[in-house]
Amino acid sequence: MQATEAAFYDGLTAGRHPVRLRLSEDRQALEISGDTLPGVLRWQLMDLRAPRDHADRDRLTLMRHEPGDDEVQRHEARLVIDDPALIAWLHRTRPNLFRHDLAQGTWRKVGYYAGGALAATALLLFVIIPALAGTLARIIPVEREIAFGKTVLAQMEYMLGGAGIGSLTCSNPDGVKALQTMANRLTEGQPMHYSLDIRVFDHPTLNAFAAPGGQIVILRGLLDAASHPDQVAGVLAHEIGHVEHRDVTRNALRTAGSAGLLSMLLGDVSGGALIALVGDHVMNASYTRDAEAEADGYGLAMLDAAQVDAGGLASFFDIVTERAHGLEVPELFASHPATPGRADRARALAERQAGTTPVLTSAEWDALKRICDKAADPAGEDI
């Protein structure tokens, strides 16, 4: 190997030392000399190491393996070589050039710290964030909750294929009026914490869900599957129960916290991705068994107070059960299992009720079923 020029950095200062390299007479080391060095340095060939992630293919940075307390086992000094022939020779003759030298016990430390990190993450995901979400759900101002809910709702509309905000909202005036009549009948005389915003999205999926801030969405597919307005009223009363107990806000905050934590861990901290995760979770909400039981109880009590036949909700559970047997599980109950016990509780209440009347008239029910139809102007053209 012919003597060649290189650059040496001692690792203690930022200075660059022009040096000359040559192979030692015993061919076991590189000898490094320069006018600014205190003497000739001898780097054993067997100790030469090069970083794997070096971006410049026309230049090779060498370091020297040195056992010590440092996990990477490298001396801080660096040698930068530009000579193509020397670089090629080193690649050809030094099989350990890109070897990782780890101190003894490094993997044990990695395992220890990784286990601690996983335990801390699990604690945050399953204990701290849920507890914090519950606290925030109780103290967050309603106006902020409503603003958050509108953002989530817009994301859900986009996920369902909407072209923009409001593009899926069904607005046939007679249908909107019938839906408001149903909501008024259910909430009359009830101490409501929210001014409910209930709407229908023009989508064929059998589903209904609530967003934070008292916003409830019924998908057209649920109206298509229902044979009586009391069935829709039962589902709506159940969703109102989730809203009033702030289950929706609590779950959304928990999902946002979990998604934010995981995004930081995985390197994606974009707000759009976080809201998308929250929207997907709200649209397919999965509440705790206690929360489901409370929402069922609230909904049945609301139906009873409004003198709406709870048998409608029971019969709707029956529809869901029949579809489940045919492996066509509605989205609404993909995470809200339509167990026979829930239908039995609704049916038991219906047997005790007296003096109930349909929540809507036949004309109002027909209008609600057609809420997604386009209204016609006086000239007979669709609006």
Rank of each mutant, 00 (worst) to 15 (best):
A314G: 09
F317W: 14
E66L: 10
W365Q: 05
M1N: 04
H325D: 15
G189P: 10
A379P: 01
A273M: 12
T361W: 07
Q104L: 09
E76G: 06
I146H: 13
A103T: 13
D296K: 01
T321W: 08
A178M: 07
V359K: 01
D26Y: 05
V110C: 13
G257Y: 02
R64K: 03
D202V: 02
A252D: 14
W107F: 14
Y112L: 15
I216T: 02
I81Q: 11
A310S: 14
D377K: 07
G267M: 05
R345E: 15
G234N: 09
D10Q: 08
G355Y: 04
V248E: 13
T255P: 08
H281S: 10
H281M: 11
G241D: 09
D70A: 12
L300A: 05
L277R: 13
S227H: 03
G164L: 02
L23D: 05
Q215T: 14
N251E: 13
P84W: 05
S24R: 01
R185C: 06
I275D: 12
R92G: 14
I319V: 14
R199D: 08
L360Q: 12
V200I: 15
L368D: 11
V243Q: 14
D247K: 03
I81E: 10
G272S: 14
G134T: 08
A208T: 04
F333P: 01
L30I: 07
R345C: 04
V200W: 10
I128Y: 07
L86V: 11
T36V: 04
L45W: 02
L124F: 13
I240Q: 02
I165M: 07
R52L: 12
T106P: 00
W107T: 05
Q44P: 01
D318W: 00
G311D: 12
A225R: 05
R22N: 09
G312L: 07
L196N: 01
A3I: 00
L327R: 05
P337I: 02
H242I: 01
I198S: 08
G105D: 12
P204F: 05
A343V: 06
L274P: 03
L45R: 08
A291I: 00
G355R: 01
I140S: 06
A225M: 12
M1F: 07
E145V: 03
A208P: 00
H193P: 00
Q2L: 11
V40I: 13
W43L: 01
L327A: 13
V152K: 04
R347N: 08
A50M: 06
V127M: 09
L79D: 04
T4E: 06
L102C: 04
I319N: 11
E188W: 08
L274S: 06
V80P: 00
V248C: 07
H193Y: 04
G297R: 10
T93M: 04
A147F: 00
M63A: 13
R64I: 04
A154Y: 04
G380W: 02
G299Q: 08
D82H: 11
T36K: 11
P337T: 02
F209A: 10
R78Q: 14
E322K: 11
R27N: 11
D82I: 00
L223W: 07
R94N: 12
